[in-house]
Simulated scan of single mutants.
Amino acid sequence: MGTSRHDRETRTLPALAPAVVEVPFGITCYDEVVAHDTTWNAHSHPWHELLWNQRGASTAVVETRVWTITPTVGLWMPAGVLHSGSAAAGTWFRASFFGLGGAGTISETPVAVEITPLLRLLLERLGEPALPAASRSVTEAMVLDVLTPSPRELLYDVPVSALLRPIAEAVRRDPRDQRTLANWSTELGVSPRTITRAFNAETGTSFARWVATVRAQRAVELLTRGWEVEDVAETVGYRSASAFGAAFRRTTGLTPGAFRSR
């Protein structure tokens, strides 16, 4: 079900437990170009799902974890895992559904997946309606063989404690926020060490690396929309394109140009 208001659409899907569902093939593919900024409520599928994009960037959220999905890094979502999502207008997203009857799983928890050129071609081939049954069976087997977790996942945990919530809300709302650990320490009336310990406990990383990841995720969204690197750098809080590029490479392992919409 979908509702549209002010060029924003919200889609509501059910939360379903893992189950063997009758599907026409072992792997069923779906794709769509969203016309509006779109959000999906928290839902789950009875089958495994591989999310990736032909064009643009989208977001998937599981509890406090936020992934960015791109044309090169997808997300494996196991059956029954509750997740919500969002995609900007113009995003061409793809979803491949893996029936539980014989597909197996690469992970019992959500994990980033490398969308290699070979995997992309195989998944696109499965979308051909006239693909012979024998060819489909071989292609499905090859997909399962080449599915590989990605070391380049764009992921961060959202802090939820009363101490860190103001920081998380401020940075996620505006990645240009330049307040340092010392600034936040003064504002919140606690020591920098207290904030550092809380970030490590709640997110598994430091304040600085967490901010860099939030900025990188916003940057990927803007880059895939076709923004110029210089404009993205300013929007996410860097004083120059070179400083942004260096920080972006440290976080993602890639240059900003790798995500530019073509």
Rank of each mutant, 00 (worst) to 15 (best):
H36P: 00
A19K: 07
G80T: 06
L122C: 01
F93A: 07
E128D: 12
L126W: 01
G245N: 02
N200F: 11
S185R: 05
G80I: 01
G237C: 02
A219Q: 09
I69L: 07
G85W: 02
S84M: 14
R94T: 03
P175R: 05
G74E: 01
A112L: 02
D157C: 09
G102E: 09
R260K: 10
S161T: 13
T148K: 07
D177W: 05
T28H: 12
T109N: 00
R260F: 04
V214A: 01
P117M: 03
V143L: 09
S206Q: 07
E187P: 03
L144D: 07
E22F: 04
S137D: 13
Y156N: 04
V190Q: 00
V113T: 01
S191N: 06
W227D: 12
E230C: 12
E230F: 14
R215I: 02
L122R: 04
R209A: 15
T139R: 08
A141N: 06
L181V: 08
V143I: 10
A243N: 08
G101A: 11
V113N: 07
T139K: 04
T28F: 14
R94K: 11
G80D: 05
P159L: 08
T109R: 11
T3L: 12
E32K: 13
R8Y: 10
V34S: 06
R249K: 15
L222G: 04
R193W: 12
I27G: 00
I106A: 02
S240P: 01
L223A: 12
H36Y: 14
A15K: 12
R239E: 15
E230K: 15
E202W: 10
T59P: 04
L144P: 04
A212E: 15
P256D: 01
L181I: 13
A103L: 01
P192M: 10
P129E: 09
D37M: 10
A208M: 06
P14I: 09
E230M: 10
R152W: 14
A87N: 05
W227T: 05
M142D: 10
L223T: 09
E228A: 08
D145Y: 11
G253S: 12
F98I: 01
V160T: 13
I27F: 01
T64W: 07
R152E: 13
H6Y: 14
M1N: 14
G189Y: 03
A89H: 01
W47G: 01
H48S: 05
V21P: 06
L164V: 01
T39F: 07
T28W: 11
F25H: 15
V229Y: 06
I27C: 02
A133H: 06
A19H: 10
L147S: 10
P192I: 07
R262N: 11
L119K: 02
V211R: 12
E202N: 03
V158S: 10
L51S: 08
R11T: 15
D177E: 07
S240H: 08
R209F: 12
R173C: 08
G99H: 00
P46K: 09
A79R: 07
P151A: 12
A241W: 03
T251Q: 14
S137I: 11
V214P: 00
T196N: 08
T213G: 04
S96E: 11
R120G: 05
